[in-house]
Nucleic acid binder design. Sequence first.
DNA 1: GATTTGATTCTCT
DNA 2: GAGAATCAAATCC
Length: 206
Amino acid sequence: MASARAVLSGDAPDVAVGLLGAALTVRGVTARIVEVEAYAGDHDPASHAYRGRTPRTAVMFGPAGHLYVYRSHGIHLCMNVTCGTEGRAAAVLLRAGRITAGADRVAARRAPITDPVRWARGPGNLGAALGIAPEDDGADLLAGGAISLVLGPRPAPEDIARGPRVGVSQNADVPWRWWLAGAPEVSAYRRSPRAPLPGSGADGRR
DNA sequence: GATTTGATTCTCT
DNA sequence: GAGAATCAAATCC
């Protein structure tokens, strides 16, 4: 079968689907990925790397299989897995997961939240549950370090749902979000308040 | 050097 | 449903 690195070197949408069901382990805590979003730097205005390489997005321009960590709204840390080929920015945002190992540690970390479904629902919560840190930016996921990624079997097509990305103000209508159908950790779709309406005012309802 | 935005989440109304 | 919280990075002049 193809190596994990080979899989991650594909196009962002392919990699995104491949990451569904994968197990991400951070210092002893493991989460099964149930929701992802793809971002391609070149032609995707929603991507942080769209305007070129910057110190913050440098990791996205590196080789596939590395972790890109960024701070959102000064409060939350979100995780991406870089993909594609080196020099061409692309990444997959990990939006939600289910804790499969280290639940006791997550429970303590996320207290007073006791509902496991809420521990890693949403990008910020996922990062919080796994205890990700800004210094984890750039970590190699395939080197067997403190953070490692293990791809699982690809879910059956009928178990995969697809839709528009959440919260982005650009390209808000590109259906580059995938999640496992029925996963309770997946949050309802919320369009960015800054996203321009697609048609001539036909939208606006949810 | 100053200003603005952000791939969010939580709480209150 | 709407607004606040809060830090850093990117953009603009």
